[in-house]
Design a protein around this nucleic acid. Structure first.
Length: 155
DNA sequence: GCCAACGTTGGC
DNA sequence: GCCAACGTTGGC
C-alpha cells in the first residue's frame, strides 16, 4: 500500500466535483509530466491512499481523501485536438500519457498549505520541498498518518 | 499579474 | 549531448 498527494485545480476538479461524479470516481486526465506519469504507471496500485490537494486557488491545501481506483491506462484527451491536453506527438498505437482513476473517500477540513508549512512533523513531505512542481508526489506512511491526525484535530 | 523554479524543445 | 529559449506551474 502506497500513499500519494495529487494536486487538482478546484476550478477544474474539486473534491466536491469528485464526490458528485458518477460512482464518485473520475479519470485523472491531463498529467503531462513524465515523473508524475511514471508514478501512476509504475508505482500506483488500486487502493492506494490519495491526499486530494487544491492548487492554484485562493486557499491551497489538502481538501479531502481519495484512493486509486484503476491501473494506469491511456489518457484519451491526448488524442483530442479540441482538448487543452492534446498532444500531437502522441500516437494511439503508443500512447505517451497515461492516467489512473481516482475514487472519492471523504471530504475533510481544509489543511491549508500555510498550516502544512507550520507543522514540523510534515516538513519532510515532498510536496513542501523547495522548487517542487510535481502534481503527483509520494507520501510516506508516517506522513499520511500525521496528516490524518491533523485532519481529525481542531481547525 | 508577477516571477522563481523547473521541464521541454530543438538547433547545433 | 549541450544549452539557450521558451513554456508551465503555482504561490503570493
Amino acid at each position: 500500500m502506497n500513499y500519494w498527494l495529487m494536486k487538482s485545480e478546484p476550478d477544474e476538479c474539486s473534491i466536491d466535483d469528485l464526490a458528485s461524479a458518477p460512482g464518485q470516481c473520475l479519470p485523472w486526465i491531463g498529467v503531462r509530466n513524465y515523473q508524475a506519469r511514471n508514478f501512476m504507471r509504475d508505482a500506483m496500485r488500486i487502493g492506494d491512499g490519495v491526499l486530494f490537494y487544491h492548487s492554484s486557488c485562493p486557499q491551497p491545501g489538502i481538501a479531502g481523501l481519495a484512493e486509486v481506483a484503476s491501473p494506469a491506462y491511456p489518457d484519451a484527451s491526448q488524442f483530442d485536438p479540441a482538448s487543452p491536453y492534446y498532444d500531437p506527438k502522441s500516437k494511439p498505437e503508443q500512447a505517451r500519457w497515461l492516467h489512473v482513476d481516482v475514487r472519492y473517500r471523504r471530504k475533510t477540513r481544509l489543511l491549508s498549505l500555510t498550516e502544512m508549512r507550520e507543522r514540523p512533523e510534515l516538513a519532510g513531505m515532498r510536496v513542501l520541498q523547495a522548487g517542487n512542481r510535481l502534481s503527483i508526489t509520494p507520501v510516506l506512511a508516517e506522513e499520511w498518518q500525521r496528516v490524518l491526525q491533523l485532519l481529525e484535530g481542531p481547525t
